[in-house]
């Protein structure tokens, strides 16, 4: 019974691993472009889990071909949902890329720690209050899990 691993169990394992690798990347990387790539992986994992919910054993694609003979079909709904979710993801990724270009232009850096401390500094200056610490020492400001 120990080796009783089904194909859908394996697929789920892969999808969960993919999304968690993405989440891990989001937590530990400091380069904003890497964070974007990690986000893409996380979304891909979530999409895979969604589309797997329509999986049937020996199921065929839900298309009524001329020679259709009553075989079991996979659930069409998750396939439609995941089509929507993928396109939504593409839109968000493109927007994030444009924002990264803009940020690079403005702050000359892709390091999230540097960007964040410069942002804090800028907000403080605009409001005319004392900036929180020096922005040359980014290491003190970072906390774990702030992007959760």
């Amino acid at each position: 019974m120990l080796i009783n691993i089904s194909i859908e169990g394996l697929l789920y394992f892969g999808a969960i691993s993919l999304s968690l690798i993405g989440l891990f990347g989001l937590l530990v990387s400091n380069n904003v472009f890497r964070m974007l790539l990690a986000l893409v992986m996380f979304e891909a994992g979530a999409n895979l889990i969604l589309v797997l919910s329509g999986f049937r054993e020996n199921g065929i694609a839900p298309i009524f071909l001329a020679d259709y003979s009553g075989a079991i079909m996979n659930d069409p709904v998750p396939q439609a949902l995941v089509l929507t979710a993928i396109v939504i993801g593409v839109g968000i990724q493109a927007l994030a890329l444009a924002l990264i270009l803009r940020v690079k232009k403005h702050y000359k850096s892709l390091d999230m720690r540097v960007i964040r401390s410069k942002l804090e500094h800028e907000i403080a200056t605009q409001a005319n209050v004392e900036p929180p610490g020096s922005h040359h020492a980014p290491k003190q400001i970072v906390r774990a899990g702030e992007h959760q």
């Binding site: 989440l23 989001l26 904003v32 964070m35 986000l39 996380f42 979304e43 968000i92 927007l95 994030a96 924002l99 990264i100 803009r102 940020v103 403005h106 702050y107 999230m112 960007i115 964040r116 410069k118 942002l119 992007h147 959760q148």
Partner: peptide, 14 residues
Amino acid sequence: AAVAALRYLFVSAT
């Protein structure tokens, strides 16, 4: 604001 939006995007998209 672009930086704030980017950081917001990461939190919100996750």
